[in-house]
Amino acid sequence: MPYPSRRQTVLLFAIVILLNLAVAVVSIFVGKYQIAPDEILALLMGGDTVAPMSAKVFFTLRLPRTVMAFLAGLGLGLAGSAYQVLFKNPLASPDIIGVAGGANLGAAVAVVMTSSSIPIMTLGAFWGGLAAVACVMLLVKATNSHSTSTYVLAGIVINAISKAMIMTLKYFADPENELAAMEYWEMGSFSNITQSKLLSILPMFLMGLIGLLLLRRQVQLMGLSDNECRALGVRLRPVRAAVLILSTLLVASIVSVTGLISFVGLIAPHTAKLMLRRNNSITLCLSGLTGGLVVMASDIFARTLYSAELPISILTTVTGVPLLLYFMCIKRGPHERNFFY
């Protein structure tokens, strides 16, 4: 199957952006509190004829939730794509170097110490994620071997330690409150997203997002062997550290307010690669948009499929798998297997 032409690539991007917009529109119309479509339109146009309660619900809960779902998918898709290139591993996802594990531990510690106070859990998860990656980098420095496999091994070590500590906390946790809060956090949800939460993580998120997009050419070069990167003039250690720190900021800022969202960081890059049949810096951007689409669609299902809200990780898996399977089953040339590192 040939490469899509420039025109087809632009068309593909346009379709994915339009789908994102369509799903976002559906997302802002869905929710437990009934807001009529004409009220939503009036609110978006800046009208003041809408009931104050509806306006408050819309601006502090409904709209931030949709924006957060899109940003979460965008960030996880981008970070996942960067990790897969950086670690030359098709199974790499944001938890490969311990961000998710660290955030999970941070949230679990916050649950035990503050009896499930949500703002403290958010802070705990954010700093937990950053601390885990800092530990990975210290371990790599201690080994004095800066190859990508050392980062992966250090990530496995930190993930294992985080897991063991979480299990210990769970074992001693109060099963009715603390254990339930920890389990619920691990499954992820957008039900607690508010305007203030969204704004609080936005600076970190944008720093990670803009930084990664600016470094997209360097990220692509990092897919080469270390020696080839050096020969082409890539400042291997600082660039690798920058990509890791930026993607960690991105992932930590997301999971700190949403809890763990599984599968998106893994499948969004693969779906983008299969759609584009390429693995370059454009794929990085399409991975983000695909992630946004999957998470927003999953969040709609999470709110509508059952009377109580379902955890987001169940839905991201249910939504993402058919999408990935569809693109996997499309007939393609044997060489295209080559670029799935």
Binding site: R230, A231, G233, N279, E336, F339, Y341
Partner: peptide, 21 residues
């Protein structure tokens, strides 16, 4: 690496570049 690459270019025995570009 960057300054050195402006002075010395290198062709490796085996290329690590894969498809997709």
């Amino acid at each position: 690496e960057k300054k050195r690459a402006r002075l010395i270019s290198f062709i490796p025995q085996v290329c690590s570049m894969r498809g997709g570009i």
